[in-house]
Amino acid sequence: MKLSEVEPGSVVVIADVHGNPEVRKKLLDMGLIKGAEVKVVRNAPLKDPMEIEVKGYNLSIRKVEAEKVLVVER
């Protein structure tokens, strides 16, 4: 499942991160690494971007980037 498809309120675990090397590196640096727990907090009023909680902080991420993050149920 892609992170972009996760409903607000759910908690999931990251399985893999794709995307072009630069963006991927950025996601990894921000704590979106394999095994990390992610809570989807909400979608923006215009549906994109989405707000997630990871590594104890809140992060806004666009759907295009969230599509590159594969997640599984906890």
Partner: peptide
């Protein structure tokens, strides 16, 4: 290239 937006929400 669109630049990714990874914005911290403090």
């Amino acid at each position: 290239k669109p630049s990714p937006l990874l914005l911290e929400m403090p």
